[in-house]
Each structure stands twice: as structure tokens, then as C-alpha cells.
């Protein structure tokens, strides 16, 4: 299956990309994909990064083909 990953803020900076399309095998939850994407990135507090699947902030979701996934660092609006 194919998912689109969007990177934001300090995650985009550490990953040196804003978006990529990933080919994934097998059954994977959002939290497993997050760990995989953040692995090796220079981010001090990986716990503070949230993952959204189709704009839904639930890391227990099982990914499916065509999902849009976003890796979101702490919010800083206002």
C-alpha cells in the first residue's frame, strides 16, 4: 500500500523534506509508522510529535492504502 507522509515544523527540518510517498508492506498502526519515520532523526523529544491519519490524531489507527499521514510537532498557534 501507498501512503503520503507530510512533515511539519521541526520534523520537516530534521527530515529535510516536507512530503514523501511511502510504499508499506503488511499491517501497520499509525504509532508504528511514526516510530519508523522518526527513527534516526535528530529530534530531542520524539514523544511530543503527534501523528494524524487523514487529519485524525489517533495513533492506534491501522493504516490503509491512500492514507494521508502527517507528523506534527508541538502546536504553536497564537
Amino acid at each position: 500500500m501507498t501512503v503520503t507522509i507530510k512533515y511539519f515544523g521541526l520534523v520537516a527540518e530534521a527530515a529535510e523534506r516536507f512530503e514523501e510517498i511511502l510504499e508499506l508492506d503488511g499491517v501497520l498502526t499509525a504509532s508504528e509508522l511514526k516510530a519508523q519515520c522518526l527513527n534516526g532523526l535528530a529530534i530531542a523529544d520524539k514523544e511530543s510529535v503527534q501523528i494524524a491519519v487523514n487529519q485524525n490524531l489517533d495513533d492506534k489507527i491501522t493504516l490503509k492504502d491512500g492514507d494521508e499521514v502527517a507528523l506534527l510537532p508541538p502546536f504553536a498557534g497564537g
Binding site: G9, P74, F75, A76, G77, G78
Partner: peptide, 21 residues
């Protein structure tokens, strides 16, 4: 608390840090 907005705080020497609410 809820809106996914991110802020890069830029210093006078053009270095930066990421803002956290």
C-alpha cells in the same frame, strides 16, 4: 491547544528555535 500551527522563532542573527505553546 488544538490547531496544527507551527512557529519558528527567528533571532537577530537568523538562527532560530521552534516555539511551543
Amino acid at each position: 491547544a488544538k490547531v496544527p500551527v507551527f512557529g519558528k522563532e527567528i533571532f537577530e542573527d537568523e538562527t532560530h528555535q521552534w516555539k511551543v505553546n
